[in-house]
């Protein structure tokens, strides 16, 4: 009875079918990574300033917002949903954090926490509207996108909130392991630029998010819902709660991204983050996440975010206009998804 499943027949079947799915998965990962390396190599040749520690940190810093939002997008998209509200939510969260500090005098950490929780609250509302009122995710988060942006503009009178003090900028501009000394005239001399806090945050969160998705019951349930929500429910998965959870993650990460971005500028802009949701979705999609649900990885999204970030940075350095950049990134999305579809066709 048992011999069917182990030993020789197993090998034979694998060979007959050609590559196993695991092998394919690895190839896919290398393909994405490989294109990333090729991109970097090309830019390193065309621009001397590209391959430097400083530029590397710049890219990593620029990628943080796409990557953080992309992680949230990956969670939501794996369940078969979509979150269009993150660009607006990050603006609202940043503005709320800034106003809390400026107008109500809260300590900066508390102000930022309030900002992040504002993002979570938006996620809770999205989750409620989608799982309880049963609106399609596209509509629910489209509504939230308009509402959050409107609130951000209303409470600031559409003006930037500035004069937040230097300490507000630490999260966005400080770095870990920075080595510097002060010279005679009082200017800092940088020996090692350090790893920017946002980059540290991004890495920690990506690792944690990947762990949750791959190694926990909750992560397994997220995949199950995207693969087949009915089967998941009939297997005892709490579909409502798990689905709502993914929107809360997305909202919270949007809130965090908002605080990081505003901190970097030391100014809160109610108009910040327009169309960021599309970058987030693009990074997930380039990384192999399927919009139908059930498929996607954090590592893939991470690579996707870097593909977008390096393309932007490298093209900038080569003096390619922002419009041409858009065209190229658009083409990259089409080509990667097309390749993905071919790969999955049988």
């Amino acid at each position: 009875m048992a011999d069917i499943t182990n030993g020789k027949p197993q090998e034979a079947m694998t060979q007959r079918k050609g590559l196993s799915d695991r092998q394919k998965d690895i190839i896919q990962k290398f393909a994405a990574l490989g294109s990333l390396v090729i991109l970097a190599a090309v830019f390193a040749v065309t621009s001397s300033a590209f391959l430097t520690v400083n530029n590397g940190m710049t890219i990593a810093l620029q990628v943080t917002s796409i990557a953080l939002l992309g992680i949230g997008a990956t969670y939501v998209i794996i369940t078969g949903g979509i979150d269009l509200s993150v660009g607006s939510v990050l603006a609202l969260a940043g503005v709320v954090a800034a106003l809390a500090v400026k107008d109500y005098g809260t300590p900066i950490w508390l102000g930022m926490l309030i900002g992040i929780l504002t993002g979570s609250a938006c996620g809770v509302i999205n989750g409620f509207v989608i799982t309880r009122l049963k609106l399609p995710p596209f509509i629910a988060t489209l509504g939230m996108m308009l509402i959050a942006r409107g609130v951000a503009l209303q409470i600031t009178g559409a003006r930037a909130v500035s004069g937040l003090g230097e300490a507000f900028g630490v999260l966005g501009n400080g770095s870990l392991l920075r080595i510097e000394s002060i010279d005679d005239q009082g200017f800092p001399v940088v020996t090692f630029p350090g790893i920017p806090y946002p980059v540290v945050l991004m890495i920690v969160i990506a690792v944690a998010a990947g762990f949750l998705l791959n190694r926990t019951v909750l992560g397994r349930h997220i995949y199950a819902i995207g693969s087949n929500a009915d089967a998941a429910r009939l297997s005892g998965v709490n579909v409502t709660r798990v689905t709502a959870f993914t929107y809360i993650v997305s909202g919270t990460l949007a809130g965090l991204t908002g605080c990081v971005l505003m901190s970097r500028l030391v100014t809160a802009q109610p108009n910040e983050g327009v169309a960021y949701e599309l970058d987030a979705i693009a990074s997930a999609v380039i990384g192999g996440t399927s919009l139908i649900g059930g498929v996607g990885t954090i590592s893939g999204t991470f690579i996707g975010a870097f593909v977008i970030g390096i393309l932007r940075n490298g093209l900038n350095m080569n003096g390619v206009s922002a419009f041409i950049q858009q065209i190229i990134i658009g083409l990259v999305i089409l080509v990667t998804v097309w390749i993905d579809q071919i790969r999955n066709r049988r």
Partner: peptide, 26 residues
């Protein structure tokens, strides 16, 4: 069935708690 998911994930889907610790780690 969650048809896109592998054999083992489907077999354990209704009883994940039995293959995870109390923190929910598989």
């Amino acid at each position: 069935l969650a048809v896109k998911m592998p054999v083992d994930a489907n077999l354990t889907l209704a009883n994940m708690d039995a293959v995870a610790n109390s923190a929910g780690i598989i």
